[in-house]
Design a protein around this nucleic acid. Structure first.
Lengths: 197, 197
DNA sequence: AGCCTCCTCTACCGATCGGTAGACAATATA
DNA sequence: TATATTGTCTACCGATCGGTAGAGGAGGCT
């Protein structure tokens, strides 16, 4: 079975796919990370696409588990932020997938994160006054927050170079508090709009 | 000179780089879009990297011009939203650049959008009470908004597939109003935090 | 012993990659 | 007419791509 070798390959592939993207990462490069040949890699995974599929699942699983365990929307977003901080390369990989999956529309990849989004929608609807929020409004709200978090996460190299690493780490410190304020305010606004309408 | 052929090439390259990324786009594919050979393309641009550089400049220029023309931060974000709506592939391309430029850190590419960000910072500091806002706080605020807008823009295919095109177009309708609310609320919050501290 | 499954390897395939060299036609300049 | 510049082309280069075929070692099972 050698689950060990497989998981090592998946970890190395995650790193490289995140850094260079699917097309920028060769099988030989992934195998080289472990000092092995690409043929060994192919023996375990069959094709490059299948390897990518496993990587995607491996990246999505902890995120889905995290939001499923969260009791409130606020808690969910806090743990999401922590996950991103621990493994920024996962965020990078998912962002690339978001950009690419127009072309792989028919594949199953797209759906890996649907439970994640559905859980966030569910948590949002548990808020008093928002039980009957429609998909469009709820998704809009959640996407604003996800966008703010994820975009910041992938901008580290750019921001560090433009404004210096000191400025960037200062941003990191204020960002979490800022996101929490954004979340609570967005919820209040949404609530008002609902009851007002 | 034949500026015409060059601009045609740049337009075709923009489209393909946005869709497939730098590594997923071959010179032959770009040339094929105009029914020409890759050698003709190379004759005009020298290397693939140089073509990419011109594409990047061509994408950044209208965004910088737009925010420079804007009188207020709100107006700037509204026109940014319109630009993204008109040419979503440009957003896609810039997002890819954001993911990739960790590797091209030393190149000049990264700096194409710095005037854009600096202008937004300047507009933010024109707000009463925010004149002395530090870079970190100001950038955090702006990045949340840019993140929310851009992330939504590149999620169209995914969201359309997951929740249907009707839900997505409903989101599009509410998104702009939602962003404006987010912006005004963020400004209020920031103002309070400043004066309170 | 013999067999079998798992794993890693060398060697190779056709296709495609970015890039080079140089022929040829068209236009402009003199 | 002769020359120079520009633009497009065919033909080719070495490198690398994803993937295939098959040899052979290591260890467990009967």
């Amino acid at each position: 079975m050698s689950t060990d070798t497989r998981t090592q390959f998946v970890a190395a592939a995650t790193k490289l796919y995140a850094e260079r993207g699917f097309y920028g990462t060769s099988l030989a490069a992934v195998a080289n990370e472990l000092g092995m040949t690409k043929q060994t890699l192919l023996h375990h995974f069959g094709t490059k696409e299948k390897l990518y599929g496993e990587v995607l699942q491996h990246v999505c699983a902890p995120m889905i588990a995290t939001v499923n365990a969260a009791q409130t929307l606020e808690a969910a977003f806090i743990t999401i932020g922590e996950l991103i901080g621990e493994a920024p390369e996962n965020t990078q990989l998912l962002m690339r997938e978001l950009l690419d999956n127009k072309r792989r529309a028919e594949d199953a990849h797209n759906w890996y994160l649907k439970p994640f989004l559905d859980r966030l929608l569910g948590l949002l609807r548990e808020k008093p006054g928002l039980e009957t929020l429609r998909d469009a409004e709820a998704l809009t709200l959640i996407y604003q927050l996800l966008g703010a978090i994820n975009y910041f996460a992938i901008s580290k190299p750019t921001l560090s170079q433009m404004y210096g690493t000191e400025t960037y780490s200062a941003m990191e410190k204020t960002y979490r508090a800022s996101i929490e304020r954004l979340l609570s305010t967005a919820l209040e606004m949404q609530e008002e709009a609902e009851t007002g309408a």
